[in-house]
Amino acid sequence: MSRKEEKALQKEQEKQEHKAQKVQGSLAASTWVGLIVGFLLLILLIVFIMQNQQQVPMNFLKWSGEFPAGVAYLIFAVAGALLMALVGGLRMLELRRQVRKQAKRKRN
């Protein structure tokens, strides 16, 4: 092997070692970024609520009353998020049940 080939091989090995030493992203880092983004969105939501304080009439089924518009939007947004979480939770339970059934079939 020539001197150039040896240097090229050594350089390639160093690159591979450098790639192996790189630190990959972690769950904690992703969570931290998510928390920061959520906090910034929360600030924007608070500003929106504070700017929409005019009273608006609300009627829902047999309930009625007047609320500040920003608070009413917040209540409906939270209710929508809870509904989505409920549907997502039911879907996860359904998938978990299917996985258990498949695992049981494989054992038998």
Rank of each mutant, 00 (worst) to 15 (best):
I36H: 04
S26T: 15
A79R: 03
A69E: 11
P57W: 02
L41G: 04
L41F: 07
L83E: 04
Y73E: 05
L45I: 06
V87R: 08
L86K: 12
Q53N: 08
L40A: 06
L74F: 08
L42H: 06
G88C: 07
G80W: 09
Q54L: 12
L44D: 08
K101V: 07
S30N: 13
E94K: 10
L42I: 02
I43C: 07
F76L: 12
L45E: 04
E94A: 12
V37N: 05
A29L: 08
Y73V: 15
V33Q: 09
L95I: 13
A79D: 06
A29M: 11
M84C: 12
A85Q: 13
A103K: 15
I36F: 04
L95F: 05
V37G: 02
L45S: 04
L93V: 13
N52V: 03
A77V: 07
A69Y: 11
K62H: 10
G88S: 14
K101R: 14
M84G: 07
R96T: 15
Q55S: 08
L93A: 11
L44G: 12
R91I: 15
I75Q: 03
G65Y: 00
L35R: 07
F39E: 06
V33G: 01
R97D: 14
G38S: 07
E66N: 14
M50A: 15
M58Q: 03
A85H: 08
L83H: 06
E94F: 13
Q51T: 15
Q55V: 01
L82P: 01
Y73D: 05
L74A: 04
G80C: 05
N52D: 05
N59T: 11
L35D: 12
I49C: 04
G34I: 02
M58G: 01
S64P: 02
A29I: 05
N52I: 03
T31I: 14
Q98T: 07
G88F: 13
R96L: 14
A103T: 14
P68T: 05
W32H: 13
L83K: 08
L41K: 03
R97N: 14
L41Q: 01
V56P: 00
